[in-house]
Design a protein around this nucleic acid. Structure first.
Lengths: 205, 205, 205, 205
DNA sequence: GATGAATGAGGTTTCATTCAT
DNA sequence: CATGAATGAAACCTCATTCAT
């Protein structure tokens, strides 16, 4: 009774491309606002202003849409980080500024879509496919962080750079996350200042 | 205190008490393993070895069970932190040890049920009731952290203690989380060491 | 995202047994009347007077229901044929009577549910599972037919009994089928008479 | 003749004619292989190498395509039977040969597209339009059979020729069907031989 | 003529929850 | 107290068909 493999439409006309884009946009909005499990395909289609059939023409299912948005999102994050890179900001007389720039960059990377970023870590746990992609993304960022640390290793007091990269990356991420989502009244600038202070004292003499 | 139109059974006999306990245990296991949205009430009942009817006799719905487990879980975490408190570990000549103990305590608090802890932050986002309880719990811990910092403020170089408390708590949480869930090979001891080093240098001269 | 294997309810109370029976009954009726592809699970549930949920509690899907009905049906056919067996009807002086009884028996086996019988051969073609069961059933009947022929082989003029069994069985089936479904006005008795005549002359001198 | 609100394209150029032919060919293939209900219009269009739009330009709907293929198929069957007619094969000294030719003709008529022939009897049940056409076709063949029998009625021992025609036609059809679709190992030649033997003894002294 | 994107009715299936036993 | 059968809203997904290009 079951039939062969599904066929996903690959848009060839500009019309189709637009439709697919609309669905992705709608998915991003709803996943961010309501979360993956509280959003259903019909709502996404409605938000995108297309029929449910179009949804399934372009995406095998909700998860696939999520995956595609995520991949796209990670690409944007990577681009943001790359473009606003810290490569030329290192100043031996003002090492704090270097860290400050790093934190601000990650902060702006999160501004792309804070809600979706949060949602990723959620769905991740119950789906290996998503988990894999997230892990790959994080590994790539971690690698970059490590590379940066190695680049300036003469000025850095920490010996275990691999571990330092994890610590620095994770802590910045977490505080950025706190800034974006905490309902508490903690001031953004104060958090950034203290974070930068902490990391600077950790890395540099 | 509220009574109105109660429907939930309050176990008075040891049999009923045991049944309720089994359901909570099963819920904890399954929510941790598969997540809230991927676990259904029938499975919980099955895991608990009781009929679905019993589930709804003791819990208004799936969310209520989650709430109850969460409350219980937070109480255990608080107890763990309190019992293994840092109150008497401060030694002016070995301030690192103080931080080290703090980190280890949070680590052991996480050992109660790492999976469930992670799951909480997931459901939180889509439910205000849960979110409120989580926030309250975190606020309490934060308050304690702040109180501790204030207690030793003469030895601490940081001025903005409120922010410092947030930073310290969040970063420890995050690294503990990394240790518990990261598939990467980063060694637990190295992470703890670097974390302790970072926080120590941040707080103390 | 996908979960483990489905669980089909196995009725333990008499209530559940009755429900399952009702669904089977409804399936038989609708499959016979409208055909497999023109009947949907909701209609079956409605006809059975139960909720759609109950349908899926007892049957994995529509096909599984069909399979189960079919198996049951074949058992009834086999029983009918066995009970009204031809074993003691052979009379050397009236061999025609023997064939006549055989045809009448198959005819009454078809009376159990002519519509469903027809439907089987339909669904069969697009589903290997169903096909297998049908083939097994037919092989069993064929075997019986052959056994009967062998029993009276001293009175039979045909040498190739294997082929004769196929011919006899298939032709009786087909004419019975014609009787049950032909919109043409051909008279049942006349068809039976001629059929019996043909087979008698074929088998006996 | 009827025109009213026609929407179906009538091909006038050779290009359109070819497209229509391709769709018919594809429909025949897929209906035969997978069955009517398991084949969808998109697949037919794909198999034909045309767009789905073209499908609906030439055929009102899937059923209409089926109907058209069927009509065409019946015409071919009729032609096959006519061309290889039995009219001049009757030999008073070898009546068996006459039946043999008859069976072989029907057999070759089935070779046109055995799968489609089988499929017809399927869809037939759930559609009156198709049923009507099938019945008409069968009636025509039956009529021919009867005519043939009448032609040689002096040599035929059976009195009820109407019924005999039905019996003969149906049994040949069924055995041909068995030959074409049976997974069993029964040999074609043996089946044909026995069938011919049976019918010969039935019709002739 | 030809294309393939878009539609949406309607089928399939799940699962939180209620209720009869 | 405990059981598990029954419910049905709501999710998921397909496909015949129409329509813009």
């Amino acid at each position: 009774m079951e039939n062969a493999e599904r066929k996903v439409r690959i848009p060839k006309q500009k019309r189709g491309l637009k439709t697919k884009e609309q669905i992705i946009e709608a998915g991003l909005t709803l996943f961010s606002d309501r979360g993956f499990y509280k959003t259903n395909s019909k709502e996404i289609a409605a938000e995108a202003g297309v029929a449910i059939g179009s949804f399934y023409a372009y995406f095998k299912d909700k998860k696939t849409l999520f995956l595609e948005i995520m991949t796209k999102y990670f690409k944007m994050v990577a681009d943001t980080l790359k473009n606003s890179g810290t490569n030329n900001t290192f100043d031996i007389n003002n090492k704090q500024m270097f860290i400050h720039t790093l934190v601000r960059n990650i902060l702006s990377a999160h501004e792309i879509s804070p809600g979706f970023h949060r949602e990723i870590s959620i769905v991740m746990n119950s789906d290996p496919d998503i988990d894999r992609i997230v892990t790959e993304h994080e590994d790539r960022i971690l690698e970059n962080t490590l590379k940066t640390l190695k680049q300036y290793k003469d000025y850095i007091r920490v010996e275990d750079l691999e571990t330092a990269a994890v610590i620095v990356y994770r802590c910045i991420e977490e505080i950025v996350h706190t800034i974006k989502f905490s309902k508490s009244t903690t001031d953004e600038n104060r958090l950034v200042n203290e974070l930068v202070d902490m990391i600077s004292r950790y890395l540099f003499d």
